[in-house]
Simulated scan of single mutants.
Amino acid sequence: MFNKIQHINDVLPFISEKKEIRVQQQADGLTVVCYEAYDEQTFDTAAALECRGIVFDRTGALVSRPLHKFFNLGEFPAYSLEKLMARDDIACIFEKIDGSMVATAWVDDKLLWRSMKSFSSPVVSYTETFLAKSENQRLQQFAQLAASQGMTAVFELQHPDLPIVIPPDKVDLRLLHVRDNLSGEYLMLNPQHPVHDWIAEYAIPLAPRFDAWTLRMALDALPEMADSEGFVIQFQNGDMLKVKCPWYLRRHGASSVLRERDVAILALEQKLDDVKAALAQAGVDLTEVLATEARLHQQLRLLEQEVAALAAQGAGLDRKGFALKFRPHPLFSLAMAHFTGQKPQLTPWYGANRLKQDFGMRVVAEFPETASPDN
């Protein structure tokens, strides 16, 4: 299921033609490889599946390998309910916590915390503040032990200031999984691995797990669930599948119809996945939704090319000269960022300036409000 990865060169050849996967430079020479968008062909290799925030250091060595990319029930034909019910290789079922992923990285013999794409996001700051409290030192110690042994510990943070759909009433940090950086193995699936002893020794809180449940039991529980997101089904080869409960999906506020502008806005805000899950689990054809999403990302790529081309016209100029020449241009602020080596904020600019003219009010899907994902 998973490839051996030691160096960034074990990944780059498999994604070189995938514009939707970005190789992003961070501070201290760290490189994060993460998708910005995807379709059915994006994750067509084991290496591409790892591009969900995998991190390499300044030498190109792997330092953090969080959860691989996995999908919602019904999102693609390979993940249909019919195919799920035919499988007999389910390894575990655990609750899908509605929170923010945070994981470890081992850099220069030091433990660092990171979110999916950043080492300095609010998620990281809130995690570090939480772990600085004396009563939470055991989590920090466990994380350092795992990271120093060539593993990535992946947690879910819930924080009142970081609500997703379900507003938590307190800060909570729960372990989801521990991966071997080299092999990608999910070590908690191996009952003989010492990580289980470490979890017990440090009293690490886990995402609720349902070891005695069958798949049928999990699906039957979905319609009655509230104040919860759903389940993750994990298979013996390590692959996973998300199954959301009807209560959670309705909380995303999808109306009876979904217009192409709605799709574009949700995709721009990275909120479309759960709406697609609701539609897919209800048996709605996603063809037009996926086509609209793909068109949005094509527009963003074209904008990126426009900005790069404008910045290139300033070759040989200094900052002041560039500003004097191009300030009247509507893309000036983005081009100036590119010209000075910063990352242009393409997404908010596009949302504020072009999205409404590019995407109209044509209905692309009808949302069956009373449908249940386990039907």
Results as ranks from 00 to 15, higher is better:
38 Y>H: 10
38 Y>D: 01
93 I>M: 06
295 R>L: 12
38 Y>N: 02
291 A>S: 12
343 K>F: 07
49 L>I: 14
36 E>Y: 12
64 S>L: 11
373 P>N: 11
347 T>C: 12
375 N>D: 15
351 G>C: 04
157 L>Q: 00
203 A>S: 13
231 F>L: 09
16 S>F: 09
320 K>F: 14
24 Q>S: 10
126 Y>H: 15
155 F>Y: 10
228 S>D: 15
213 W>L: 05
300 L>W: 04
282 A>S: 11
45 T>N: 07
33 V>A: 00
200 A>H: 12
174 R>K: 13
261 R>H: 14
353 N>I: 09
214 T>F: 08
7 H>D: 12
347 T>D: 12
152 T>M: 08
103 A>D: 10
214 T>Y: 11
145 L>T: 14
367 F>N: 14
95 E>P: 03
145 L>R: 09
192 Q>S: 15
215 L>M: 08
192 Q>T: 15
96 K>T: 03
165 V>S: 02
165 V>T: 08
189 L>R: 03
233 I>F: 07
359 F>Q: 06
118 S>A: 13
187 L>Q: 06
80 S>C: 10
332 F>T: 04
197 D>P: 00
232 V>C: 02
168 P>L: 08
288 E>P: 06
158 Q>I: 05
131 L>F: 01
118 S>V: 13
200 A>V: 08
368 P>K: 10
155 F>L: 06
113 W>G: 01
3 N>M: 15
101 M>R: 05
292 T>H: 03
325 K>R: 15
84 L>T: 03
184 G>N: 09
27 A>L: 11
166 I>Y: 04
259 R>H: 09
150 G>C: 06
127 T>Y: 08
371 A>M: 09
32 V>F: 02
283 G>L: 05
307 V>S: 05
240 M>V: 05
221 A>K: 04
169 D>M: 06
209 R>C: 11
135 E>G: 12
175 L>H: 01
108 D>M: 13
200 A>R: 11
327 R>W: 13
299 Q>F: 07
140 Q>L: 14
157 L>S: 01
171 V>G: 00
